[in-house]
Amino acid sequence: MAEAPGTVFVPRSRLVEGVRAYGLIVAMWLRSTMAYRASFLMTAVGNFAATAFDFVAIMLMFAHVDALGGYTLPEIALLYGASGTAFGLADLLMGSMDRLGRRVRDGTLDTLLVRPVPVLAQVAADRFALRRLGRITQGLLVLGYGLVAVDIDWTVVKVVVLPLMLLSGSVIFGSVFVAGGAFQFVAQDASQVQNSFTYGGNTLLQYPPTIFAKDLVRGVTFVVPLAFVNWLPALYVLGRQLPLGLPEWVAFLPPVVAAVCAAAAGLAWRTGLRAYRSTGS
């Protein structure tokens, strides 16, 4: 990272400052990780294997059936890979948000508040764990298998939708991580709740929406819009009917939904931080 020349008091965009600080702290964690190289390798492989087992379980299911909820194994692989990759990216970049509660409890959050960089960037970069590349790798492999094995009627639009889906998906999951972190300002011991939406959401999205109750699908479409991570865009790519009778153009909304989620998460974060600074606990 190039050292920007300049004096101390030049105001900069908070976003730029945040990203820069994030990079600086991540670099420190990478160095730390490399101090325990063997441990890193082992946990990275473990991370890969743990997520791989998930898919092995699906493959075992398909040893007994040809379709699940009307979807074939390669189709589910596409859903699984898309969600896994998006979630993996968010987990890599923001996955440490669930440590916020602990920092609040032991008081170490205060040491971050006296630094001249955004707290969100510092918390997000905390304990940056490169081993989470294992999950992304697994997600990409399954996604690759799905894309190769499914007979897709490729169009230019579909080629554009695919990368947008992965990016928007990780922003949506990232927003959930941030909102979960903000929630821990209020309830420090509730980091588990966030897991329901992140890890739980990821598990949910790995299966086609046809197997879930309508209300559940409605919930993850309109309340916590996880359906935009992969279901809606991927079903469009697969040429399938969208759930809940949604029109086709909804499949192009993920970038918009992602932007809204990010804004909402940012707002939640500000509210949480303000609450912390007025209560100190």
Partner: peptide
């Protein structure tokens, strides 16, 4: 408990399909 319940629901639906 909340998390266990959420996961329970998700897995239960996949089992129903199976």
């Amino acid at each position: 408990v909340f998390t266990n319940t959420v996961f329970g629901f998700i897995l239960a639906y996949t089992f129903v399909a199976l």
